[in-house]
């Protein structure tokens, strides 16, 4: 089965984000979600009933930011709105975007 290049991420409030599959794979959680024989792997549609669109949008931004800069040196920091930093800390934990792993620090 030819896999689509994109996957759809759905927030708790029903917003959908279509993201490049390769960019999403920076997250070990997403990787696990998409590689095995679970429902998401077959549909390419991942629903997050406990993540709001505001947060998911930032996460998607990060996916793209990571994908753009994954091989670059001296990458500028991604801008994080201060008021969201706590939610994003949690999202980072949920998606495994923490060091030391691929989404945290490259190796």
């Amino acid at each position: 089965m030819a896999q689509s290049q994109y996957v759809t991420l759905v927030s708790s409030d029903g917003y959908e984000f279509v993201v490049l599959r390769e960019a999403v794979l920076v997250s070990p959680t997403m990787k696990g979600m998409l590689r095995s024989q679970f429902q998401e792997a077959q549909t390419g549609r991942c629903t997050f009933p406990e993540i709001s669109a505001v947060v998911l949008e930032m996460v998607v931004d990060y996916f793209h930011y990571w994908y753009r800069n994954r091989d670059k040196e001296d990458v500028p920091d991604i801008e994080i709105p201060v008021e969201m930093c706590l939610e994003l800390l949690l999202a980072a934990a949920y998606f495994g975007l923490e060091p030391p792993s691929r989404g945290g620090t490259t190796w």
Partner: peptide, 15 residues
Amino acid sequence: NASRLSFENLYRASY
């Protein structure tokens, strides 16, 4: 029978 399961659901449960 994994194909009918939602990974997210299970992951979130363990999380």
